[in-house]
Amino acid sequence: MDKGHLKVLENEPVADRVFRIRLQGDLVQQMENPGQFVHVKCGPGIDPLLRRPISISDVNLEEGILDMIYRAEGSGTKILSEAVPGALVDVLGPLGQGFPVEGRKTGDHAVLVGGGVGVPPLLYLAKQLVDKGVKVTSVIGFGTANQVFLEKELGQYGKVHVATIDGSKGIQGVVTDILNEQFGLSPSEWDVLYSCGPLPMLKALQVKFQETDKEAYLSLEQRMGCGVGACLACVCSAAEGSEKSYYKICSDGPVFPLREVVL
């Protein structure tokens, strides 16, 4: 973890208001774990003042290239969406604890579940899992067809199921509608589930799999201050029986075992 300036290689829209920014620099060498994030100063000056936490979507360690996919939603990310190739972006990271992949072995079946701008970190995860011989199935949900992204990229690593709320692409519904027998994804058919997405999605996953004995992980999101665990802005309650009474999402997370956090 350190602070550095990365050079913009490209910054292009990949879906409605969603951009992929490709950055290059030395700091990328440290980005070995999928599911970690970086804290980005979106523009110079004091407005916006704070950094923005953005997940690491993909990494090319050899070439020092980092891909992030973000929605230009607020003042900071809108400024970031205007960064042109050659510009430098102030990045702090990599931060947090990512998706654990160490215990995975050849032949395991991993289900990767993402919603909206929670989908990006699943790509780097899928790549690492496939490298380990793990079978990957992705289940990704969006609002409408024009918001869908990473379907093709995730498709390089395994089967991809898409859900949209309005049914304009894939099945009509949400990701939890796909995690069942009909799609060959009932809990007995996989070994581990990794997920990242909006809070209602994570809550639904927690309810659905809380009582199973399956290994499962949730990546949480929260408004952050420092991003390194000092300011206590982004805490969440730990489930009963956990080691701690609360967790800092930025430094203890953002990835937690599904049963360890209270959403």
Partner: peptide, 17 residues
């Protein structure tokens, strides 16, 4: 244990906590 989240909000040139 502190307050519920969200605990921070940004303002022009500042932040609320």
């Amino acid at each position: 244990m502190g307050n519920p989240t969200p605990r921070v909000a940004e303002t022009p040139g500042g932040m609320l906590n």
